[in-house]
Simulated scan of single mutants.
Amino acid sequence: MRVLIIEDDLDIATNLLDYLASEGYSPEHAADGISGLHRAVSERWSAILLDLSLPGLSGLTLCSKLRKEARLDTPVLMLTARDTLDDKLTGFSHGADDYLVKPFSLKELGARLQALIKRDRGQVVPGVLEWADIRLDPANWTVERGNRSIKLPRKCHQLLHLLMAAPDRVLSRNECELAVWGQALDGSDTLRSHMHTLRRALTANGEPDPIETVHGIGYRMLRPAAD
Score class of each variant (00 low, 15 high):
139 A>Y: 07
182 G>N: 05
169 R>W: 00
60 L>E: 06
154 R>E: 14
81 A>I: 09
175 E>T: 14
94 H>L: 07
182 G>P: 02
16 L>F: 14
153 P>K: 15
96 A>C: 14
219 Y>L: 06
177 E>K: 08
224 P>V: 05
105 S>P: 07
216 G>Y: 04
96 A>G: 07
31 A>R: 15
182 G>C: 04
22 S>V: 09
23 E>V: 02
10 L>K: 12
29 H>K: 11
134 I>D: 02
177 E>C: 09
133 D>R: 12
59 G>W: 04
157 H>M: 15
157 H>K: 15
112 R>T: 12
124 V>S: 00
217 I>A: 09
164 M>D: 10
166 A>R: 03
150 I>R: 05
125 V>N: 01
84 T>Q: 14
99 Y>C: 04
188 S>N: 12
89 L>I: 12
55 P>L: 02
115 A>D: 03
199 R>K: 15
99 Y>M: 06
36 G>T: 08
183 Q>G: 03
172 S>D: 06
135 R>Y: 05
187 G>D: 10
50 L>D: 02
126 P>W: 01
225 A>F: 08
168 D>G: 09
218 G>Q: 02
102 K>N: 03
167 P>N: 01
64 S>D: 13
180 V>G: 02
198 L>H: 12
156 C>K: 12
136 L>V: 05
37 L>F: 11
1 M>H: 10
40 A>Y: 01
58 S>K: 06
154 R>N: 15
3 V>H: 01
97 D>S: 11
14 T>K: 15
179 A>L: 05
16 L>M: 15
8 D>N: 13
77 L>I: 02
143 V>C: 11
195 M>Q: 11
175 E>P: 08
22 S>K: 12
177 E>V: 04
158 Q>W: 13
